[in-house]
């Protein structure tokens, strides 16, 4: 009988600690935009010295806003795919707009001068904007690079339709079974609802 009591207590301890894990590990977090929010426009300097705003794109149906940078290996791994997205979807009304959110004091490799060099080396077909003063990325809630926000232009403004990563394999495009950004833009172009609206990926923290 004594054994039974001890065992019962043990079982209770196990049950209690199993409960604790749910409580402790669930934390509320996350700021910035959610799906359905209206994204802010901006006026940011492009690598050609001209300022770019979303409102300049009168014919666009939306945008593939891509927070990216020079120094991050994950960003570099996706550069060719970002160019391919722009080439494919610019003509269809969804151009890529790349924004470097990093503070060059934290990462000298991400300076405006180095952005120009990298864009030229890779032959970027899209604007590569510098978030001077780092005012835009916190409004979007971008946490890392690369981090994609797909916006759809509506009467009310540019509505956030997708937040996340480009596809399901950063190492090898051919092994990516899911192409989240393409699927989302295709859906929007066909007037369908975006199925997968939110994805996660490892990325380099944006440095303020």
């Amino acid at each position: 009988m004594k054994t039974l009591k001890i065992l019962a207590v043990l079982a209770l301890v196990i049950a209690v600690s199993a409960f604790a894990v749910d409580k402790v590990l669930t934390k509320k977090g996350g700021d910035g935009y959610d799906i359905g929010d209206i994204a802010t426009d901006f006026r940011l300097k492009n690598i050609d010295g001209k300022y770019v705003s979303l409102s300049h794109y009168r014919d666009a149906k939306g945008f593939i806003i891509t927070f990216t940078c020079n120094h991050c290996p994950y960003s570099v791994a996706y550069e060719d795919r970002i160019i391919a997205l722009d080439k494919k979807y610019k003509a269809l009304g969804y151009p890529v707009i790349a924004i470097n959110p990093n503070n060059p004091r934290a990462y000298p490799e991400d300076s405006f001068e180095n952005m120009k060099i990298r864009a030229k080396e890779k032959g970027f077909t899209f604007p590569y904007l510098y978030d001077d003063g780092q005012k835009i990325y916190p409004q979007y809630g971008a946490k890392k690079t690369p981090h994609i926000y797909i916006l759809q232009k509506t009467d009310k403004g540019n509505v956030v339709r997708y937040i996340g990563t480009i596809d399901s394999n950063y190492k090898d495009e051919k092994l990516a079974s899911k192409k989240y950004v393409e699927d989302a833009v295709d859906a929007l172009l066909e007037g369908r609802e975006v199925k997968i609206k939110h994805t996660k990926a490892i990325g380099c923290s944006i440095k303020a």
Partner: peptide, 27 residues
């Protein structure tokens, strides 16, 4: 490479940015 699948299994709230840390004992 399929981080979208495993990041939430580490923690639902994790955006995928690093550094990130877990400190645990048992459950």
């Amino acid at each position: 490479p399929n981080a979208n699948q495993w990041i939430p299994k580490v923690n639902e709230e994790w955006s995928g940015a690093i550094p990130a840390t877990i400190i645990y004992k048992g459950s």
